[in-house]
Design a binder for these strands. Structure first.
Lengths: 255, 255
DNA sequence: CGGAGCCTTGACCAGCATCAAGTATGGTGG
DNA sequence: CCACCATACTTGATGCTGGTCAAGGCTCCG
């Protein structure tokens, strides 16, 4: 498995480079991070709530959810992480977790010791800046989730989530249809949108009947992207994908 | 006004010090930040949506809301900032705003040029770390807001917000009652909790009738803290106030 | 003393939750 | 290859939480 490391880290590096400017040396430091792989079964926590962690997790394959619990037992997913996401980079500066990370489907993760991330960030402060910036994109996404559950009706909530994931995965359109694997249950969709599984089922049916999108066998198919974007009130700018280079600030001058 | 600067910056520094370890030199750099004051009237934006900003805003007095808009015109407040908060420190690494900042009541802010913050962070990387960490606390709060609007009923939502603000303000208890000024309208409370102003009014009445808390003339009075905490499902740990020093990681060794 | 904004209350309604029962689907062991 | 089981999905009936619409009252300020 050792050979795969750099390929998977490269995907994370590409993510960083889409928003930050890094020198050769800085890029190399990312690719040299030590790590080890782990497979996580569906509904299994790989980071617990309230734990002290000393590793960060990169999603290699599958989907992970960030779970926040309310005391009455109701679960709420506050983020969905896709391959290439560093799901808890923030743990580097905040080791005590305030939410749990759970695999939504069979998921492969890479654990990277904080120690290695910290020493790289200390040696090359521009890396710390890139990490910080990436965390803030997650925050912008989270902010939109508050809007989603706070102000949109059920159809728009589900539609918005589908649009968001499709955009983050850069799912391509083929013959007018956007497809991507999305192995999450309707119950998990409900936990992400603040609805019940029964109502999610009805809404998916409505989206299918209206010809917007359908979820069949763990795969999403968007049949009418423009229409879905409209009912979902989706505006991709908050995701900050493809920030033009001249809009990428750098605290430290390029060496 | 020049003399007041350091006092107001000291409040922000105290905030940083409660979660990060900073040397004398680093602390001095915070207190030396240049800034200028500004008064903002209620419902006035002091940072617009989609703008490119080159200053960060510290709340000196009053309350500010972070507004995210959905296309159909429904407003959602995604964060409330209290005095001592740097409301948009994240703009240092992300200059294009994805949400607006608006004064909820008559508010005094301090604008601090990014240029000064960046040069301090570049010279003293531990400051960048402290800023990053503080941003992540805001993210943890945001995450709880998703739970709030997604999974709690109206009474718990309002209760939780009141508990959160009381805790962040460190409002003291006097004769069994916790009081603090909270000059926001019921309409703004509705925007923060994903409810309507009419329903907020009814819920406030219910909280009053139940003897938990009341909002009179722009002041909150919590009569039964334990009871309110219980109906609101409030657990203050996520706010990360008073992190013990040994739980404050530092990427860079103390000089 | 008048007006604007905010608060309050009532009547009615809709979106989503809840409860319940039945149907696919996929994995496992024989 | 099939029988079985667990999990997920589907659908219907019913009701509650919170939205909508409307009208009137309070408070502060000029």
């Amino acid at each position: 498995m050792r050979y795969a490391d750099r390929l998977d880290l490269q995907r994370y590096l590409d993510r960083l480079l889409s928003r930050s400017i890094l020198t050769e040396e800085e890029q190399e430091a990312i690719l040299d991070l030590p790590c080890h792989y782990e497979n996580v079964r569906p509904n299994e926590d790989f980071v617990g709530l309230g734990e002290d962690v000393d590793q960060a997790c990169l999603i290699v394959d599958g989907f992970a959810g960030r779970f926040d619990q309310s005391a009455n037992g109701a679960r709420q997913i506050t983020a969905i992480h896709v391959p290439g996401d560093m799901a808890d980079m923030h743990s580097v500066v905040q080791t005590r977790t305030t939410s749990a990370l759970q695999a939504l489907s069979l998921t492969t993760i890479m654990r990277i010791p904080h120690e290695a991330i910290r020493s790289a960030a200390a040696r090359l402060p521009a890396l710390a800046e890139a990490f910080w910036r990436d965390c803030m994109v997650d925050t912008a996404i989270l902010s939109q989730w508050v809007v989603n559950v706070g102000r949109r009706d059920a159809k728009a909530r589900i539609g918005h989530l589908i649009c968001e994931i499709a955009t983050r995965l850069k799912a391509p359109m083929e013959e007018g249809v956007i497809r991507f694997p999305f192995a999450v249950t309707q119950h998990q969709l409900a936990d992400a949108t603040g609805l019940t599984a029964v109502h999610v089922n009805r809404i998916l049916k409505a989206l299918r009947d209206d010809g917007f999108a359908e979820v069949v066998r763990r795969e999403v198919r968007i049949l009418d992207w423009q229409g879905l974007v409209e009912v979902a009130d989706f505006d991709r700018r908050y995701l900050q994908i493809d920030v033009p280079p001249h809009d990428r600030p750098r605290i430290l001058a390029v060496a």
